[in-house]
Amino acid sequence: MALRTTPIADNAPNKITVKELDFFYGDFHALTDITVDIKEKAVTAFIGPSGCGKSTFLRCFNRMNDLIPSARAEGLVSLDGQDIYETGVDPVDLRRRIGMIFQQPNPFPMSIYDNVAFGPRLQGVSKKAALDEVVQTSLERANLWKEVKDILGRGGLTLSGGQQQRLCIARVLAVEPEVMLMDEPCSAIDPTSVQKIEDLMAELKDRITIIIVTHNMQQAARVSDFTAFFLQEVAGDPAILVEYDRTSNLFTSPKDRRTEDYITGRFG
């Protein structure tokens, strides 16, 4: 379990609220009846066997699924109380507020500096001093500044995998997101970098809400405050949210037998 002095309070505000969400890819019913409150400034982990819809669910939060033709969501997903699927919500603005980190680090084929300055420039920041500051601050927050401060002009793709992933985190942080979605952010990088990214998550949650999808249950247990377990019980049926609880409870005394069986390795 993520070590901390005080656990997230029960009455901590919700950043994202999901009510009775169903999700479809055309005729395929991927998720059904998902209701969950994501606490603000906490780390929430989604776990479950492959194909249980956890990445699909994650992508509902920033409407990434909109990019897939025939995909549709029914039910409510709200950010700070506002329905994000409402007409009038700009998905681009939404994705600034809710940043995303993917399994494969995906720096743009440009310099380290330009990677981080990319978002702020799009938002209209053009003065060099202002950009310099945001680049430095973001790289510092991503715990990458010390390693790259003398090579900012070098291509982002020349960095190691773990550094590239932290560069992508800095790029997201540069636009001051409120939420960061991380889809298997550590599965393609070396253990030392994994450690750095996990440490980083613990630091970042003072400011932002983090939701992480991970196949690594020890990682979920280490980094998260809350854990949600998803399961597709029968092939072809939609996946459900089986159990959602504080990570410390879910990994010591899960309430549902299916959660127990999954996390103890009895199936999946």
Binding site: M217, Q218, F251, T252, S253, P254, T259, I263, T264
Partner: peptide
């Protein structure tokens, strides 16, 4: 890395 009932 036992969890849940195994850990208990």
């Amino acid at each position: 890395f036992p969890v849940a009932r195994d850990l208990r």
